[in-house]
Amino acid sequence: MHDDTSETLPAAARLAWWGTAWLRGQVVTDLLVDAVIGADATHTVADPFQGTDTLVGGLARLRAEGATSFGAAFPAEGDPVGLGGPATFNAAALEEGSAVVVAGADLGLVPQRTGAAVAWVLHPAARRQLPDVGEADRALRSALVESATLLADLDVARWNPEVADRLMNLRHRPALTAPDGVPPRCVDLAARALQALAITEVALEDDGGAVTAYEMTARREALVPLDRAGRRALVSACSPEVWPPA
């Protein structure tokens, strides 16, 4: 059931999918550990009050405290999507670019990476407002078309042929394997979200390709809506609170 997913899905998304499946008895512990850790050396759960535990030990404690699912957040400056506060949790999640909210336990986990090790630091976390899966799906499709059109107007093929190639080959998405319980629609949405985010990342890598400051600004403005839609789609796809019924 596990292939290259751990290399393509962010850690918060992996924990959301496999952690939720583990809580619901849909995957065994070994699969949980394999999928969440992926290519990393180790993952731990760090509680500021109770110290550091293994990944399984920390998640087991969260289960004992009432955890019912794990949902991902991928915030950016000005767009705290997937977060519900408090401010200290939001700030930590924003600094790292991701977090996991533990439904049923009023807690959140923020991944702090040191080399090949990840420590999931516990924080108090409030309930959050989330984009509906259908809404996020439609917004992503719309943003992709709009951004592709704007980038074509900016002659994307001239300054970054790789971005042009990616936009021409949108059917070639990352192949994600998900545990039982993740709706197929959400697996597909996550793959398209990752694709959109990869396009924005590649397109912004080298501003030297643009001839003028105006073009650099125009390129960024063309990509901001796609980045926002991609992150929101990934949050929906990795948040069991809004998954459609199986």
Results as ranks from 00 to 15, higher is better:
residue 95 E to F: 03
residue 13 A to R: 01
residue 93 A to M: 08
residue 194 L to D: 05
residue 126 A to Q: 15
residue 223 L to F: 07
residue 113 R to G: 08
residue 92 A to V: 05
residue 163 V to R: 02
residue 194 L to Y: 01
residue 123 H to Q: 04
residue 1 M to E: 02
residue 159 W to Q: 02
residue 75 P to N: 07
residue 245 P to M: 12
residue 209 G to Y: 03
residue 35 A to N: 01
residue 108 G to K: 03
residue 124 P to K: 11
residue 195 Q to P: 00
residue 207 D to W: 04
residue 42 T to E: 15
residue 233 A to K: 00
residue 3 D to P: 10
residue 18 W to N: 02
residue 222 A to F: 05
residue 29 T to I: 04
residue 141 R to Y: 00
residue 155 D to Y: 05
residue 80 P to S: 04
residue 10 P to Y: 11
residue 140 L to S: 03
residue 53 D to Y: 12
residue 175 A to N: 08
residue 243 W to L: 04
residue 116 A to I: 04
residue 26 Q to N: 03
residue 124 P to H: 12
residue 62 L to V: 03
residue 152 A to Y: 04
residue 44 T to I: 01
residue 195 Q to L: 14
residue 33 V to M: 06
residue 220 R to Y: 13
residue 39 A to V: 14
residue 128 R to Y: 10
residue 98 S to N: 02
residue 23 L to S: 07
residue 14 R to A: 06
residue 120 W to C: 00
residue 210 A to H: 08
residue 164 A to F: 11
residue 178 A to L: 01
residue 43 H to C: 11
residue 92 A to W: 15
residue 52 T to S: 08
residue 76 A to C: 06
residue 65 E to Q: 14
residue 208 G to A: 14
residue 43 H to D: 01
residue 159 W to K: 02
residue 75 P to L: 01
residue 128 R to F: 11
residue 71 G to Y: 11
residue 89 F to R: 01
residue 152 A to P: 01
residue 109 L to S: 04
residue 28 V to A: 13
residue 199 I to V: 13
residue 117 A to Q: 14
residue 178 A to C: 03
residue 44 T to S: 12
residue 166 R to A: 09
residue 139 A to I: 04
residue 20 T to I: 03
residue 218 A to C: 08
residue 28 V to L: 04
residue 229 A to D: 07
residue 64 A to G: 06
residue 120 W to Q: 00
residue 233 A to D: 05
residue 65 E to W: 08
residue 181 G to Y: 04
residue 43 H to I: 13
residue 217 T to P: 00
residue 177 T to P: 15
residue 57 G to I: 09
residue 223 L to E: 08
residue 32 L to C: 08
residue 81 V to L: 03
residue 131 P to H: 08
residue 30 D to N: 05
residue 77 E to W: 15
residue 209 G to V: 14
residue 205 E to G: 07
residue 93 A to P: 06
residue 91 A to Y: 07
residue 89 F to I: 03
residue 164 A to V: 12
residue 23 L to H: 10
residue 158 R to T: 05
residue 203 A to D: 09
residue 196 A to T: 00
residue 24 R to S: 11
residue 5 T to P: 12
residue 133 V to K: 09
residue 5 T to H: 14
residue 197 L to Y: 06
residue 148 A to N: 00
residue 55 L to E: 01
residue 63 R to D: 14
residue 75 P to C: 06
residue 48 P to E: 05
residue 8 T to D: 13
residue 110 V to T: 13
residue 166 R to K: 14
residue 93 A to N: 05
residue 96 E to M: 15
residue 190 A to Q: 02
residue 178 A to T: 07
residue 78 G to A: 14
residue 72 A to H: 10
residue 186 C to H: 03
residue 51 G to Q: 05
residue 238 C to E: 05
residue 47 D to M: 04
residue 19 G to S: 06
residue 183 P to V: 11
residue 86 P to Y: 11
residue 165 D to R: 13
residue 220 R to S: 06
residue 216 M to I: 15
residue 130 L to D: 05
residue 86 P to A: 08
residue 115 G to L: 10
residue 233 A to Y: 05
